[in-house]
Write a protein that binds this DNA or RNA. Structure first.
Length: 784
DNA sequence: GTCTGCGAGGTTTTT
DNA sequence: CCTCGCAGAC
């Protein structure tokens, strides 16, 4: 089990010996060609702390990978002396392959290039005993974590309704992100769970140790503890890792920051790359403060700013820059580009969310044909970026209707599906019979008549005899004491695991074994017998799972991989439009980007603002910035006046971000296109973008009518509604408190308050709502 | 121990 | 509205 670890240690120690004087400066470095001066500085400033502030699209990854190539080329470090940290497996893979192509594949591997978590596992396996674990500890996924916490909460007789386990799991995660041990949890945050939050946390840690398991946060924290408590170990790693590079530094949390600071403390050869304007993971513990503070933490830092953008046109860049300028706490960058003008950012308002989806569908088809003087944009060059995943449905529905190929990125992930987790739990017990959590998961899946009662009995026996759950189950079967049905079923299961574990030990072909486990346990039969429509899909997934096993040498290797790599298979290369959340879009780029749903409350999200106030709003604004800067040539922002939320119509106000877009770089479109002139005069003294969009007379245009005729199959917003909107807009100045009004979706009501064109109205049926004046008519004007 | 009906709640997500 | 999780009936 530990052999590779020892080999590696040897290799690393050997590597510490002075490098041969293999001519650094003398040899040419072709990879430097084509870098701009800033990028060169980022690559060539090798010693001491370096902070690379890399705006969107400025060649950040290129700088980082070239820097690694340069370290290798100049002989500053061998591949295994570079610690390169990323956040996602995808980023790690990208970096690996790009370094490979830069140095011509001469360099064998880079063992210490990976995610914080993967690297931590590597370190932790070597020193597990220092934190009371065995080196074959298991890594819990969120599911296991919550189940374990539920047990603890139940044991304390705490009301699960009031204090859901999931909430505590979230709190514990938050504490771990901040590197807080149970003893250090501030009293003020422990008030939940009857002031026993920290106590429950401590108990959870005890349980983990007993189970020889870690959750994700522990991977980092245990390594921290080891490095802090064992100077000799720390010194060893500091010697091994001569150069440290960190990608997406703005996303690091406190624990990760401490982790890095320890490892970099001696030589301080740490280079971090990031963009404070793209920090969008505050809600899961990322500390923008880390990057804002870097220069203070590492005095003498060389700061390199990458400000030349190679991705977007000038208008897109200007719009993004103006928007993000509204944020207060920034390091500040001035992005520039030599790509001239191009299309302005397009802005369009719609009647409702369905029309928005319909319009975007048509735009995509138009883009495919080549429109507005642009070269045709193929589907895979187009992305729709939404704030929240529920927004994706409208697009999926629409695209299915018109037969537009699309893919959703970031849906439920393969390894998080129930059937996959169940199967994996079987594998886990077969590999490590001690894995109690996995055993509990599948002991009654498929139904074996082993319910709470029997499980309690197993648990009691396990505790009494100090053995694992599986062994306890074996004891119970041997000694009797269970109802006949449970007895027989459990006996069969225990026998099964005996067999399967033996097969693992004997090195049986793991593909065959996996299939046998799923068959003999009755697991696949369970799904075959299931009548529900998705049962077949689940069986297919299981086949897929077994196939994926083929890429690994054995079950252990596979399980280890999956515990750290929970990502989806991406069918890349397909000619499909991408639909994803803004979060998922970070790091990607597309010729054409659609940003729908820019409405207050949806984006910026009300919940973010409620939870974190101005800080939350600023993070939302960064999200908007990330969205716009994904676009290379065409960026289209849209919002709808009405949206169905939980099947209730809700009137929406345009996002404040719409008004923050600079008018000079924005073109206001008239939906659905064509030549309907906006005849509603702009109200004097007001000229925000949102107003401009509202005033364009959309619905009286010939284009609109033609569109409706064409749409045929399904009635779109009735023209009368639309015409009324226009009438309303004209009359909007006239509303005053007390006016009786009518709204298409909410019915009759009375104006309670007027603020500009925004009205607070008490509706008779729907209660108090905030509505833009143009969506409302004076009650007597309704033609009934 | 398993099945059915009722009520609550319903951002973002990687490892 | 639709999904999930829990409590009560078989």
């Amino acid at each position: 089990m530990t052999s590779w670890i020892d080999d590696e240690a040897e290799a690393l120690e050997a590597a510490v010996a002075p490098l041969s004087a293999r001519a650094a400066a003398a040899r040419p470095a072709p990879y430097l060609d084509g870098l701009n001066p800033d990028q060169r500085a980022a690559v060539e400033t090798l010693d001491g702390p370096v902070l690379i502030l890399a705006g969107a699209g400025t060649g950040k990854t290129r700088a980082l990978t070239t820097r690694i190539a340069h370290l290798l080329h100049t002989g500053r470090a061998r591949p295994n002396q570079i610690l390169a940290v990323t956040f996602t497996n995808k980023a790690a893979r990208d970096m690996r392959s790009r370094v490979g192509s830069l140095v011509g594949g001469v360099v064998e591997g880079m063992p210490w290039l990976g995610t914080f978590h993967a690297l931590s596992v590597r370190i932790l396996r070597r020193h597990a005993e220092l934190v009371g674990l065995k080196s074959n500890f298991t890594i819990l996924d969120t599911d296991d974590q919550v189940r374990l916490i539920r047990q603890i909460v139940q044991a304390h007789r705490i009301d699960e309704k009031r204090w859901p386990p999931r909430l505590l799991a979230g709190l514990i995660d938050g504490w771990k992100n901040r590197a807080l041990t149970p003893a250090r949890v501030p009293a003020s945050e422990s008030s939940a769970y009857d002031h026993r939050g920290a106590e429950l946390y401590a108990e959870y840690q005890d349980r983990l140790r007993t189970l020889n398991a870690c959750d994700f946060g522990d991977l980092l924290l245990h390594v921290l503890r080891i490095l802090q408590g064992h100077p000799d170990v720390l010194a060893q790693y500091q010697r091994w890792f001569r150069y440290i590079l960190v990608d997406e530094y703005q996303d690091t949390n406190v624990a990760q920051y401490l982790w890095l600071r320890l490892l970099a403390a001696s030589h301080r050869n740490i280079c971090v790359v990031g963009d404070d304007d793209q920090s969008i993971y505050g809600w899961r513990g990322a500390e923008v403060g880390n990057i804002l503070r870097f220069e203070k933490d590492f005095p003498g830092t060389a700061v390199v700013r990458l400000e030349r953008n190679y991705r977007s046109t000038a208008h897109i860049l200007a719009a993004a820059s103006a928007l993000i300028a509204a944020n207060e706490h920034r390091l500040g960058k001035t992005l520039w580009t030599e790509t001239p003008g191009g299309e302005k950012v397009r802005l369009i308002g719609h009647w409702d969310g369905e029309e928005e989806a319909r319009w975007i569908g048509e735009e995509i088809e138009a883009l495919g044909r080549g429109t507005r003087g642009l070269d045709p944009v193929r589907p895979d060059g187009i992305a729709i970026l939404v704030r929240a995943s529920h927004q994706m449905r409208a697009f999926e529905d629409r695209f299915l209707t018109i037969g537009l190929p699309y893919r959703v990125i970031g849906g439920p992930r393969f390894y998080e599906r129930q059937e996959i987790r169940d199967a994996m739990a079987y594998f886990r017990v077969a590999v490590s019979p001690d894995d109690g959590l996995a055993f509990e998961r599948i002991v009654n899946v498929p139904k074996r008549g082993i319910g709470d009662k029997a499980l309690q009995e197993i648990n009691r026996t396990a505790r009494a005899s100090g053995v694992s759950l599986l062994d306890a189950a074996g004891l119970l079967v041997a000694n009797g004491g269970l109802p006949p049905r449970a007895h027989a079923a459990l006996g069969q299961l225990v026998d099964g695991f005996d067999r399967w574990h033996a097969a693992v030990r004997d090195g049986h072909d793991h593909l065959e074994l996996a299939e046998a486990i799923l068959e003999e346990s009755g697991y696949t039969d369970m799904w075959r017998a299931e009548k529900s429509p998705d049962a077949q899909g689940r069986l297919d997934n299981l086949k897929e799972l077994v196939k994926a096993l083929g890429e690994f040498e054995n079950l252990q290797g596979f399980l280890e991989h999956v515990s750290l790599v929970m990502e989806n298979e991406t069918d890349e290369g397909a000619e499909k439009v991408s639909v994803m959340t803004l979060h998922a879009a970070k790091g990607l780029e597309f010729p054409a980007v659609f940003l729908p749903g820019w409405e207050d409350g949806l984006f910026p999200s009300q919940r973010s603002m409620d939870a974190s106030g101005i800080k939350g709003l600023e993070e939302e604004r960064r999200l908007a910035y990330v969205g716009i800067t994904r676009a290379e040539r065409l960026c289209t922002v849209s919002f709808a006046a009405n949206r169905r939320v939980y099947n209730q119509w809700q009137s929406q106000l345009p996002s404040r971000f719409v008004d923050e877009l600079p008018a000079a770089h924005v073109e206001v479109l008239t939906p659905p296109g064509l030549y309907g002139g906006g005849f509603v005069a702009a109200a004097p003294g007001r000229s925000t973008l949102a107003d401009t969009v509202a005033k364009a007379d959309v619905y009286n245009s010939p284009g609109w009518k033609r569109m409706q005729a064409r749409a045929g199959e399904r009635p779109v917003s009735p023209p009368r509604e639309a015409r009324e909107m226009v009438i309303d807009a004209t009359a909007s100045a006239a509303f005053e408190a007390g006016t009786r009004v009518f709204h298409q979706k909410f019915g009759y009501g009375t104006v309670a308050d007027v603020e500009g064109d925004k009205l607070a109205i008490d509706f008779e049926k729907a209660g108090r709502k905030n509505v833009v004046a143009r969506f409302v008519t004076a009650a007597d004007a309704v033609p009934f």
